[in-house]
Design a protein around this nucleic acid. Structure first.
Lengths: 210, 210
DNA sequence: CCCAATAGTGACACCGAGTGCCATCTGACA
DNA sequence: TGTCAGATGGCACTCGGTGTCACTATTGGG
């Protein structure tokens, strides 16, 4: 079966993540040392770095992007769906998978870390950049013209921002609304464009509108 | 005049940046050590860290955002201008100022570093995030509703992405087009919205629009 | 012009992240 | 059970970054 080794490895990896998540609760990322995590997980410091190349990766590695999924999802799109819809669906699924790799009780902490701990926030941006390029590749045809490339890049980036801004707004608003409807609202902005004025929900025109 | 100290400080700071820029040319950021930069700039290692808090900051610190400029520029907007135009103007100026802090002969290298050296690219994203929040603050009224906040976030993010994607596309395209026209094209996408498929010209409504 | 207050410098020691090396241990399998 | 690949962890090292402290140079006043 050759399975005991694998099982131990998985359990050790999980132990590291769990220990790190517990230790970082309410503390700064930089204040939790690798030594501390390693001894909490009952492994040697050297072994820690065999499981995760850097301390950051304890919190990010499992968010590793499913490149396969993104490209196939974009290839399998229904012809009737517009770009924003397709990309938003892909992104929501990517987001879902990224969080699904962690225990539910750790997900709130994970969000805090990836948004408010600079080192981790910065790394998260790099992940998003990679997602963006994958989506762009899936949107444009072979040998795209600069203009087509530009449109795809702007579209993909804007959708990513909708997801990010949507989640941020949703959390700041006390998670009252349904996240899906917040994202749908953001997506609607992208479809509609920003040329015309926006009105606040009570119909009062925003002050910056002609 | 009390100016000799100031002059020396400025010259030392410039020497550090120049030495670092020369040393990093064609090499990886991680392969250039602080010791190396310090001795090239003829200062002690300890002094290096008095001028720049981290090695990264040699390349990023001078890009420090002019918060004042962003907020006042948004307050002073002409009422007739639409949001995309205003924000794009602000961003172009921010970009221009960021690069203006470096010697012209170092600017190409700086672009390479901030886009292709992971540590620096990640830090650059954090700067952009800060710019985004400043723009959002300038766009929304006092005590904004979640919906207004979401729109502003999406708009600001999308404009930032237009600038980033525009510059990338422009460079990849061999800098043939005028950068301003590339940015204008990206901005036009944002005004127009992405509802219509690139291939279809009719305004078929998307099923997700309320 | 000289002197004292003050700011800047750099050597040293120290910490934490990350790596190469190597002896040791342990699960896989014949 | 014995052999071997692979996992472990200790050690020593490099590099980024910081606190401390003695030393030097600029400044401004007498």
């Amino acid at each position: 079966m050759a399975g005991l080794r694998e099982a131990k490895k998985a359990s050790t990896s999980q132990a590291i993540v769990d220990s790190a998540m517990e230790l970082v609760r309410g503390r700064r990322f930089a204040d939790v040392s690798v030594d501390e995590i390693a001894s909490a997980a009952r492994i040697g410091r050297r072994t820690f770095f065999r499981y995760f190349p850097t301390k950051e990766d304890v919190f990010l590695d499992r968010r590793r992007i499913d490149r396969e999924f993104i490209t196939t999802a974009l290839q399998a799109r229904a012809p009737a769906e517009d770009d924003v819809t397709v990309v938003m669906h892909v992104l929501e699924e990517v987001q879902r998978r990224a969080f699904a790799a962690f225990r539910p009780e750790h997900q709130a902490e994970l969000h805090r870390l990836t948004h408010f701990e600079p080192q981790l926030a910065a790394r998260s941006w790099l992940l998003m950049e990679e997602v963006r390029e994958l989506i762009v590749s899936g949107l444009v045809g072979p040998d795209p013209e600069p203009s087509e490339l530009l449109r795809a890049r702007v579209l993909a980036s804007a959708c990513i921002m909708v997801v990010d801004a949507g989640i941020t707004t949703w959390i700041e608003g006390g998670r009252r609304d349904d996240l899906a409807s917040v994202l749908a609202e953001g997506a609607a902005h992208l479809r509609r464009g920003f040329a015309r004025e926006a009105t606040t929900s009570d119909g009062r025109p925003s002050r910056m509108i002609p």
